[in-house]
Design a protein around this nucleic acid. Structure first.
Lengths: 234, 234
DNA sequence: ACAAAAGTGTTGGCCTTACACCCATGC
DNA sequence: GCATGGGTGTAAGGCCAACACTTTTGT
C-alpha cells in the first residue's frame, strides 16, 4: 500500500501549491438592542446584490491571523479588538474563481467606535436575526460563528467588547438576551454579575433618560485575567 | 482609501493561487488507561527523528473534510469514525517546503479496530501526557486538539468512541479520568451516567479478571440523538 | 480466608430559580 | 401625580460533592 504524508514526503508537493487561502471576518456589533453583523455588497456577477462577509486573500508573507486583523482594520479602522478563529471552510466549489479555502474569524467590536471605510455605501450593519440570504457559503459561516459566540459568552465574559466603556446593567442584560435569544430574570442576572466581581461601579448615572437613571459600570479586565476563569452558566 | 475584498473583486486573485492546503489528523485512542495519539516518524531532514501528526496535502478535487477522512482511512483502515475540525494553523514558516496552511482535525477511534498501515514500523501510538517534542508546529496543534477534546467530553458523550462496544463503568471512568486528568468519585460518576440513560446493560460480565467481574454496558447512540443534548458537567 | 475491585444511598451545602414591591426621575 | 424603568431580598427545590460498608469472585 502506498500512502503519502506531507509531513514525511516532500517530492510531490510542488504540484499542489495552487490553492488560495482567504480569511472571512464575522464582525459583530450591538446596537438598538440587537446583535448586528457588518456585511458588504458583493460585486461578483454570480452573487450580484447579495451580501457577503468581509474577507480577503491571505498575502504570501502574511500570517492568517494578521490577514484577518488587516481586513478588520481596513474596513473599520479598529485594532486590538477581540477576535477569535472559528474554523476553515473548504468546500470544493465555494468560490467561483477557483479553489479558495477560507478561514473564518469572528470579532466583537463597539459599534460606536467603528468608522466604516466605505466607497459607495456598500457596507452595512445587519441584524443577525433578520439575515436570510448571503453570497457564497457565508450563511453557513455566519451561523457557525454565531453559535461559537453563543457558547463563548456563556463561558467567558467577552460580551463587554460589544458595549461602550460605560454601560448600565440593563444594557448588559439586553446584550446577553440578544446574543442568546432568551429572556433572563433581572434580579438573578444582577446577582450573577455582581457576584463575579468583574464590574466596577463608576458612581455615574445615565443621562437624558426619561425615567430613573441607571448606574453605570465598566468591566475590570485585569481582575478577570487574574481570577480563575469560571463559567457564567446561563 | 483602497480596500480589497475577495468577495467583491476578483481580478487580482490569480496571483495568489500559490499556497498549499493540508490536513493534519490528531487520532486519539485509549489503551492501558492512557489517552494515546497516533504519530509518524518524520523523514524530513529538518525534523529527522521527530514525530509528527498524520497529514497530507488536500487534493485539488477534494473537500478538506474528505481529505482528513482519507488520511485516516489510509493509515488506520477506519471509516465512519468520530472526527471534528478544530481550526486552521497558518503561521508563515510552519512548513519548510513553502506556504502550507493546515487544517487540524481530531478523531476518536477504538484502538483495537485500528490496523496500522505501516511501511517500516514508523507509526506508533504515544501516550499524550508523555509527548515532549514534535516536528513542525505539531505540538501546538496537538495541544489545541486535546483541549478541544477535554471540553467536548464534558459537553457531549463522545468518549464512547474511544472504547470497545462493550465496556464496564470502570473502563468509562478510567477514560474520563485520563482525558480530563482528574480523579472522579466512583459513586457520583455512576449516578451521573445512569441518570443520563445512555447506557444499555448487556447483562454480561467481564471475563478473566481475578476479582469480582464488572457488568458490561454499551452506549445507546439513538437515545442520545433523540434527547436534548445536555451537558455532562464534570 | 484473604485480596481486589464492584456495587450501592444518604446527607449537607450550595447554587439556581421564581417571584413583588418600593424608588428615582422626567414630564 | 403618573408613567417608566431602576433597584432590591428571600424562600424552596434541585444539583453536586463528600463519604463507608457490603458483595462477589479468584486464588
Amino acid at each position: 500500500m502506498h500512502t503519502k504524508n506531507i509531513n514525511t514526503h516532500l517530492t510531490e508537493i510542488k504540484d499542489y501549491f495552487k490553492a488560495a487561502i482567504s480569511v472571512d471576518c464575522v464582525i459583530f456589533g450591538f446596537d438598538e438592542n440587537e446583535l448586528k453583523v457588518l456585511l458588504i455588497e458583493s460585486d461578483l456577477k454570480e452573487y450580484k446584490g447579495k451580501w457577503s462577509l468581509l474577507g480577503d486573500i491571505v498575502h504570501p508573507d502574511e500570517d492568517i491571523e494578521s490577514a484577518a486583523y488587516r481586513v478588520l482594520r481596513e474596513r473599520t479602522g479598529l485594532e486590538d479588538v477581540f477576535m477569535e478563529q472559528v474554523q476553515a471552510f473548504g468546500g470544493l466549489n465555494r468560490h467561483p474563481a477557483g479553489r479558495v479555502v477560507t478561514i473564518a474569524y469572528y470579532s466583537l467590536v463597539n459599534i460606536q467606535h467603528v468608522e466604516l471605510k466605505t466607497l459607495q455605501n456598500e457596507l452595512h450593519w445587519h441584524a443577525v436575526k433578520d439575515i436570510r440570504q448571503m453570497a457564497f457559503d457565508h450563511k453557513d459561516i455566519l451561523a457557525t460563528c454565531y453559535q461559537r459566540l453563543q457558547h463563548k459568552v456563556i463561558d467567558q465574559p467577552v460580551g463587554f467588547n460589544l458595549l461602550p466603556k460605560k454601560f448600565s446593567l440593563r444594557d448588559l442584560q439586553n446584550l446577553y438576551e440578544a446574543i442568546l435569544d432568551v429572556k433572563l430574570d433581572r434580579r438573578n442576572f444582577r446577582k450573577k454579575f455582581f457576584a463575579m466581581d468583574y464590574l466596577v461601579d463608576l458612581n455615574e448615572e445615565e443621562q437624558d433618560v426619561r425615567h430613573r437613571p441607571a448606574r453605570l459600570y465598566k468591566f475590570n479586565q485585569d481582575k478577570y485575567d487574574l481570577q480563575h476563569k469560571k463559567s457564567l452558566g446561563f
